[in-house]
Structure formats: C-alpha cells, structure tokens
C-alpha cells in the first residue's frame, strides 16, 4: 500500500511538472504573470450547444487556430441550449486552468458571474455574440449587429416589393444578438418600407427547427396575408422553409435569415428559402481565440487591430461598449452562391 501511494505521488508531481513546462512554453511570448501559475496553457472555446452544423464549423476554426499558432486549443459546450448547463461547463473548465476561454454565451447576462470567476482565476475570457458583455476581457463580433439586421431586411423587402405582412423569428427573446438584428430589421422596415407590417412581436423558436416549422404553419393559418419571414437563429430558416415547401408556397413567400449552407442547401435550391445570411463560424472561432492570444500575451485590442483572420483584418471598437470589437465578416448567400460554401 505505501508503495502504491508513493507511486501515485510521483506520478502527480511529474504531471504537475509537465503542466508547468507546458505553461512556460505556451506563454513564452508574453510573460503574463496571471496566467502562468498552474495554467494548462490550453485555449478552450465554449459554444452555445454542441452537435449543430454551425458550431461544428466553428470547431474547424479552433483547429485552424492550433495549426496557425501551434497552441493547444479545443471546443466544448452543453449538449442542449441550456444556460445553466453552459455555466456548469465553464465552471468545470475554470478548475482545469486553461490559458484562455472563448465563450459564445446563450444568455450573456447569465454568464457575467462565471466569467468574473474565470478572470479571478487568471484566465483570459473573450466572448462572441455578446456585445453588451461587461466582465470579459473583450468581445468579438463578426459585424455590427444593426448592419446585419438591416441587411436581412433589405433582402426581405426587395423580395416582397416593399409591401405586405412579415414575421420575425428569434431563437429566444433573451438572445441579445437575435433581438438586436430583429430590432434593427424592424427599424429599417419602418424607416424605408412603410408598406410592410410586422404581424407580431418576434416569435421564439427555441433554436429548434421543429418548433420553427410548427409555428410557421400556425402563423400562416392565423395570418392569411403573411408573406415574409425573417429568421434570426440558424435553426429558424430550415424549419420555416420546410413548412413553406410542404404548403407549396415557394413562389408566394419570401424567407430570409441566418442560415448554414449545409442545413438549407435543398431549401434554397427549390425556392422555399430565398436568401441566407451568415458569418463564417470557423473564422469567428479563430478570431476569438486570436484575440484571446493577443490579450494573454499582454497585448491590447483597439480599432485597427488585425487578428490575422479574413474579415477581422481591421477591428472597429464599438461605440456602445469599449470591450466590443466589430469585424466585417457578414456573408449573404442565394441559390447562385450557396454551393461555394461546404459547411
């Protein structure tokens, strides 16, 4: 028994030594004192939920970061879109002392506390899709949210000829980015297309295509004149499009919103969905980790910072929140261009 114990101790000490070596190696560029002690040196990206195409694509950006920098990086997240589960994942990671965390929060307000805990533990935290975040070191957005919402509305309004009823879907009413796009879209419509009317407050899809599908059918029934759909969650457009396809209303409706090419390709091809908007989650994931690396190595983000990632070559500091930095990485895809993207 004592032999066994000493073996365990030796293994433990060895492991600690190795961890320490790893840390020295990874933070050699910056000499950041906070991150050095007991840090595993790893960069971890925490997403809203695992298993959907959007965040699978983001993971390839995390891998690209590793390839580019040689730093260990990985991605994790809750299996369902549940705020409490996501907080639990982050708390679990704090104990492992990574060098930095990228966080794509489900509800930015709900992760402020746990982000503060991570920072207190010497971990750099950079968020994404959380433009009002206060406790993180920085927040990286692919684009200005108002611009993005306006862009979706421009597509929808053109398709509808500036007239008729439309509805907006959001993943949840607490999702800040979804609400920001919806509100910017509404504002643009009211300013430029007075002939259009939004039929209700934004409808929640729970980030679930089946919910979006069912609600689309109900909305079509309750509002016989409904012609436009504005989807914010990447799961909205696949559900809306399926309902449109089943009802044979491809030529009678306009469906625009956030979407992933692999999940919407067939619907875009047959006209059930008319246009999808997105930013490449791979580039966003890579940009978040690059920003985290700059901060971990003692640098600072400012207007004009180049993260070395396409679309994030010249960041702009948000006028609303000094911690938020905007890229210029929005994509708009239609039936002609969707096949250029294989995710």
């Amino acid at each position: 028994m004592p032999q066994h114990l000493s073996a365990t101790l030796v293994t433990g000490v060895l492991a600690l030594t190795l961890t320490a070596c790893g840390t020295v190696g990874s933070s050699s560029g910056g000499g950041d004192p906070a991150g050095a002690e007991g840090s595993s040196g790893e960069y971890v990206n925490v997403v809203k939920l695992t298993g959907i195409a959007w965040f699978d694509r983001m993971e390839t950006g995390v891998d690209a970061f590793t390839e580019q920098t040689g730093l260990a990086a990985s991605q994790t997240g809750p299996a369902t879109a549940d705020t409490e589960l996501q907080v639990g994942v982050i708390q679990g990671l704090i104990a492992q002392r990574p060098e930095a965390l990228g966080v794509v929060p489900l509800d930015p307000g709900a992760v402020e506390n746990v982000i503060q805990q991570a920072k207190d533990a010497g971990i750099v935290v950079v968020t994404h899709e959380a433009p009002t975040i206060q406790n993180a070191d920085a927040d990286i957005e692919a684009f200005d949210n108002a611009d993005y919402g306006t862009k979706i509305m421009a597509g929808l309004a053109e398709c509808m000829g500036g007239e008729g009823e439309y509805v907006q879907f959001v993943g949840s009413l607490t999702s800040e980015t979804h609400m920001a796009w919806a509100e910017a879209g509404l504002a643009a419509q009211q300013a430029e297309h007075p002939g259009m009317t939004r039929v209700s407050d934004p409808v929640e899809s729970d980030d679930n295509a089946d919910t979006a599908y069912e609600k689309t059918k109900q909305l079509l029934q309750a509002n016989p004149a409904l012609r436009g759909f504005f989807g914010d969650s990447s799961q909205d457009v696949p559900g809306i499009g399926r309902a449109i396809a089943e009802a044979g209303l491809q030529d009678d409706t306009c469906v625009y919103g956030t979407g992933v090419p692999s999940e919407t390709r067939e619907l875009v091809a047959d006209g059930s969905v008319d246009g999808i908007y997105l930013w490449d989650p791979a580039l966003a994931g890579q940009a978040v980790l690059s920003a985290a690396q700059i901060i971990a190595e003692g640098g600072e983000l400012s207007t004009g910072t180049d993260l070395g990632v396409e679309g994030y070559g010249s960041l702009v500091q948000s006028p609303d929140n000094p911690k938020t930095f905007l890229g210029d990485a929005a994509l708009a895809l239609t039936a002609e261009t969707i096949d250029d993207y294989d995710f």
């Binding site: 939920l49 298993g51 959907i52 299996a79 369902t80 679930n208 295509a209 089946d210 599908y213 696949p238 399926r242 999940e263």
Partner: peptide
C-alpha cells in the same frame, strides 16, 4: 422532419 437531429427531443 427529413433530418436526424440528436438534440431534437431534449
């Protein structure tokens, strides 16, 4: 639904 989403019933 035409797709198999492992999280759909959660």
């Amino acid at each position: 639904s035409g797709r198999a989403d492992p999280t759909t019933f959660f």
